[in-house]
Amino acid sequence: MSLSPDDVERLSTPAWERAKQAVTAGERDEAIRLIDAAVASWRSLQDYSINWITSLLSFIGEELGEEAVERALRRTGEEYLRPRRSGPVEWAELPAEVRARAIARAMVANFGEVGVSEDDEKITLSFRCGSGGRLLDEGRYDQPGGYLVLRERSGRTFGRDELPVYCAHCSVNNEMQPIEWGQPPVSVEHPPAGKGEPCVHHVYRDPRAVPEEVYTRLGTRPPDRTG
């Protein structure tokens, strides 16, 4: 049986492009169906990707030790994230509202849910994380042969006695490395300690006001604030 021209068109055209065509044609219900199909496809790919990453990090940690997990994440930070975060305006110079929107936008795009509160000192973002938190909620660390939990207390675990391995990219790439690059943390993160708990991010209005204990838990010192 040969593929029809319509079959080929459906196979070769992304659902979101077909949704645009349906909108132009005034086919509202079909457009909504195609948008939902595109989201479902992305969700499936996200599920594949986060499990692939976590399986790989678990293997590295089990075979080479937890410090090797940090080295692997640092490589990603240096080769990919640092150039991506470089721009004409330093992260710390952006208004807190801009920084908070950027973080929330990325988390929501990753199928997270966000709650927002603020005070004079900071903006607080509370996430039901769509990746690391989702793995925790699904019990992927608890089952036989489950993913690695880091248990060597260090900066990569936020100074905790244990941290799910996927969440270590938050400590290494979002806090430890930015500090080493002469910047404040992207945000101050408090990952969930158990199922159903939110991942809380503090975005300080004045990056110089990040509490000293944030640096202490990472095994470093705050920058000189006398200047």
Rank of each mutant, 00 (worst) to 15 (best):
A104P: 04
L56A: 03
G61Q: 07
E189K: 09
V89A: 15
T124D: 00
A68W: 15
R28F: 03
D142W: 07
S154A: 14
H202Y: 14
Y166G: 11
M107Y: 10
L135V: 01
S131Y: 03
G26I: 08
P95I: 03
G61P: 04
R225I: 05
C199G: 11
P191N: 05
H202N: 15
W52S: 05
P14I: 04
A193G: 08
R101Y: 08
D119G: 05
S41R: 10
Q177S: 12
M176K: 02
P207G: 01
V203I: 11
G87T: 11
V116H: 07
T124G: 01
E152F: 01
E17R: 12
F158T: 10
R208H: 11
E152L: 00
R75F: 06
A72Q: 08
R151D: 15
T226C: 08
E9V: 05
M107L: 08
L57F: 06
D119F: 01
Q143D: 07
L135C: 08
R33S: 11
P83M: 09
V39M: 07
T13A: 02
S44E: 02
N110W: 01
I123R: 12
P164E: 04
L125D: 01
S171E: 09
H201R: 01
T124Y: 00
S154D: 15
Y147F: 12
D36W: 03
S55P: 10
E70L: 14
R75H: 03
V114F: 00
L163M: 11
G61V: 00
R217K: 07
V108A: 07
M107W: 07
E162T: 04
A100D: 08
V89Q: 15
E93K: 15
